[in-house]
């Protein structure tokens, strides 16, 4: 998307320095991604706050204390945490222009992400079977909304990861695609850090 005139102007114009494309020398895409993530902080902040406000408002036997399955959630948290590692490995591979490993690690990351989402769906069905529907209580609504939003973010991330793998396979090898991978990486890590917050605030701290 840095598709524009700037490149033209500086690359082909009378730019003596030659190397940097933008005023700050930073990539437009990366700047945009960080801005987006800054903005997302307020989105998740609002959802977490809503949950914090309402987490105690549930019927006697359908609260966090009865429902949480800490070992299970810990396992899926671990999966998501490790996906951050594989994502980083994909980014460093992309920096080395090592397409094979990039694709490999991206695929692994996507798999881990999908595993996490599957775990979440499983968890939701368990809760649902125990009687916790979306509209059962304020606690359940705000819990499902918060974790649901996060789950959608992870799902979008998985789709993006797989799309990038597809793009990598189609394009010329050796070409520098590191920024593309890095962008997806930033998004992916953000999804991970949101879960770090959710895991502690929602699951570990008793209501």
């Amino acid at each position: 998307m840095a598709d524009t005139a700037v490149h033209a102007a500086t690359d082909h114009g009378h730019d003596d320095h030659g190397t940097h494309h933008t005023t700050t020398g930073l990539s437009n895409n990366k700047l945009a991604m960080w801005l987006f993530l800054g903005s997302e902080c307020l989105l998740f902040g609002g959802l977490i706050s809503t949950y914090m406000l309402y987490r105690g408002r549930h019927s006697e036997n359908l609260g966090p204390d009865q429902l949480w399955d800490i070992p299970f959630t810990s396992a899926s948290s671990f999966v998501l945490l490790m996906s951050s590692l594989t994502m980083v490995l994909a980014v460093t591979a992309a920096k080395r222009r090592d397409d094979r490993n990039t694709s490999l690690w991206l695929t692994v990351t996507a798999m881990l992400g999908a595993l996490f989402v599957a775990g979440q769906i499983y968890e939701f069905t368990v809760f649902y079977r125990e009687g916790l529907g979306f509209t059962t209580s304020l606690f359940s609504s705000s819990f499902y909304t918060l974790t649901g939003f996060h789950g959608v973010h992870v799902t979008v991330g998985v789709i993006m990861l797989l799309s990038v793998v597809g793009i990598l396979m189609k394009r010329r090898t050796g070409e520098d695609k590191s920024e593309l991978v890095e962008m997806v990486g930033l998004y992916w890590h953000f999804v991970d850090i949101v879960w770090i917050l959710i895991f502690t605030l929602v699951y570990l701290i008793p209501a």
Binding site: G38, C41, S84, F190
Partner: peptide
């Protein structure tokens, strides 16, 4: 995760400003 996995520690300060502005706010 933010500082190392997301490279914010090594990257340009501007990225940190953008992100922390949102976070702190």
């Amino acid at each position: 995760v933010v500082l190392f996995f997301m490279h914010l520690k090594f990257d340009n300060r501007l990225f940190s400003i953008m992100f922390y502005m949102g976070l702190i706010l």
